[in-house]
Write a protein that binds this DNA or RNA. Structure first.
Lengths: 117, 117
DNA sequence: CCAATGTTTCAATTAATGTTGAAATAAGGC
DNA sequence: GCCTTATTTCAACATTAATTGAAACATTGG
């Protein structure tokens, strides 16, 4: 078996990782995960995390575009929730490509000088 | 129990996510994971992924600073390997804060108009 | 010591990202 | 319809990240 990478889900994974690779956004997402199906409105998030409303809006959009959260209007409020299946997919990808699915050991040594033919 | 976030490992997690949130770096890391303990030298990585040597060096440094890979000199070669325990920690963090450790359901509804006291 | 190869650093450029204040939009209550 | 509140958009700015060519450094072999 040859060393080979599967680039199929790559762009989606990179987007999701990038969305979470920022302090404010990671906090927002964790907060939404913590509140579960009830979700939260931007006002509550902004107050809880002390993020200005427009900055938060920007970050929510990023998370939304990455497919990690979704929104639902409720009157004049907008409720955001974490997309748990999407997050599960991300973790599954990471797990699959971290330890090749299960273990992390045992590969034959390669000679650095021997370039791939 | 109150909604509360643990910011302890946050900066490390953000760094690791940021390191992986880039196509070239994700490919490099996945390649190193794939080769396991034998690791690879920059030359091999550059050739395999068709990344210019200096660009690769930049990305390797980023991954290294994020603690996801480590290097070991072997003569005039430098061997890079994925830091599997570090990756496992990252995945564990993600898992813990994705579904609160295990499940993803059941939280009481909150009223958006009711701000946290 | 010199030449050859592998790898990194440097400097410069370009592109992308995060933040902010002010203005605009959306919906509900009067 | 108008006021109030919630949320988003816009424009501008500051910061940071990615890419490249050229030069420098490190190590081995002759």
């Amino acid at each position: 078996m040859k060393t080979q990478l599967d680039f199929s889900a790559e762009t989606a994974v990179v987007s999701a990782l990038a969305a979470l690779a920022q302090t404010s956004r990671l906090r927002v997402f964790r907060l939404l995960v913590g509140t579960g199906p009830s979700g939260l409105c931007p006002g509550q998030i902004a107050e809880t995390l002390e993020i200005p409303a427009n900055s938060l809006s920007f970050h929510l959009k990023e998370l939304h575009h990455a497919g990690l959260i979704y929104q639902q209007r409720e009157g004049r409020f907008l409720r955001y929730r974490a997309d748990m299946p999407a997050m599960k997919e991300l973790i599954d990808f990471m797990t699959a490509h971290c330890c090749n699915g299960e273990h992390c050991a045992g590969m034959p040594e390669l000679d650095c000088a021997a370039t791939t033919s």
